[in-house]
Design a protein around this nucleic acid. Structure first.
Lengths: 235, 235
DNA sequence: TAACAAGATGACCGACTGGTCCGCTTCTCT
DNA sequence: AGAGAAGCGGACCAGTCGGTCATCTTGTTA
């Protein structure tokens, strides 16, 4: 969909093999994560390994093609919810979609944020996803459904956490993430008992040293998140 | 500390090298995760690769030695808090310790739960950690500081999620996890707006088919966690 | 149908992994 | 001091990885 319309249309067999390859890669990556080998994918697709590299110069390019598809899918899902009547319910539904897809596809969870910060294509897709998440979050915030100090980047990072929390038991309790999503969403709801500590995350700007712990920025809470502990030696 | 007191005491140079090796491994694993190569660790320790395998028959044994130390450290921290005056504050402090250590040591996050389910030694340490977490959680629950349907295993899995959520930005915002821990802890607090869906996680028993989604077990909430979506095709 | 370019192939490459092994060194004990 | 055992070093092994390339096949087009 992206690099196919360059110059000539693909020859029939090439187009067929490319699709076989994409399907196989999506399946293998979903099952084994992106550390699955190219040879394994080629075997699954029923084509030779050299053919894989003809279609995608590097393995990262193949991963990017798969991951971008998934990220775009989520962006589309978010966009479809961006004018829902109930913004808070829409945000929850969006969050559900994101974790659900992560659970189905293990490669996505490694790609969702920052892991591929060197891959331009994935970055662009991730940026789009972050943007629509920001929109959904702001609508819910304005509605008062979630606390005022939560950002879209909080949401997207927390969704990664929800998936990862449930991942160890994904075999035996494949829907456990719903439970953890409920906990996290509860934590995002209004009214906030205590303000969140620290400035919000920033996936894009602040390449380094954005003043990530400005003095006095920590909120005073009765149940303070502990700042430091006296031990400097290892156990 | 574990296999050293077998038969003879180590020779002086062996003991020295063993300590060099453990220190180097802890540092390298903390920095690069447990996928760091044995050669890299040997290089860091200034000893030959063969010597590594003399002290630890396999890489997994080396990983286990490091990880068990960390898990035991956390268990001890939890035990020290198990009779604190304010159980809810104690639980939060314990949770802070856990995420903090995960942030410092990337190997721990992969080991905390279930990843090493085949390694007896790590399993034993993880079980102890889970047990003390359960105790701390129950005390906070009885105090009314956290909602009644939260278990210790919820807590330990969520802590993994908190770390993972903040991990992508750990370079630029190394204390971001405090923010996410605050969100999650807020979600655990009493009073619960809605009951948590699904039965609690179970790390040990239920090797399979413990009825992980019994009909009607899902809680009725106004903002329901969506159960299923109609699309069966990929994007 | 014939010629040619696009595509497919799989042996091959170098880099890397965890792990082994044997000759050499060094510590310890008498 | 000297013997013997414990420990060490690093070449080596088999396996895997991503990636390349010369050669063969096949779809397309004149």
């Amino acid at each position: 969909m992206s690099a196919a319309s360059q110059s000539r249309p693909l020859r029939a067999d090439a187009a067929r093999n490319r699709q076989l390859l994409l399907d196989a890669a999506a399946m293998i990556f979903a099952e084994h994560g992106m550390q699955a080998s190219v040879a394994q994918i080629a075997r699954q697709a029923g084509i030779a390994k050299g053919t894989v590299f003809r279609h995608f110069p590097t393995k990262d390019d193949l991963v990017a093609a798969i991951v971008c598809d998934q990220l775009d899918y989520l962006s589309a899902a978010g966009t479809a919810l961006s004018d829902a009547a109930d913004p808070t319910a829409a945000l929850l539904e969006f969050m559900t979609s994101v974790v659900e897809l992560q659970t189905r596809d293990r490669s996505l969870c490694q790609a969702a944020v920052g892991i591929f910060q060197d891959n331009q294509e994935i970055q662009a897709c991730a940026d789009r996803l972050t943007k629509i998440t920001e929109i959904l979050t702001e609508r819910a915030r304005l509605q008062g459904g979630i606390r005022g100090d939560v950002t879209g980047q909080d949401v997207i990072l927390l969704l990664r956490g929800v998936y990862q929390a449930a991942a160890p038991l994904s075999d035996r309790q494949p829907t456990l993430w719903r439970r953890f999503l409920a906990v996290v969403f509860e934590g995002l709801r209004s009214p906030a008992a205590y303000p969140l500590p620290l400035p919000a995350p920033d996936l894009f700007r602040s390449p380094l040293g954005d003043g990530q712990s400005p003095p006095g920025a920590r909120a005073p809470t009765s149940l303070q998140i502990r700042d430091d502990r006296g031990n400097s030696e290892e156990p």
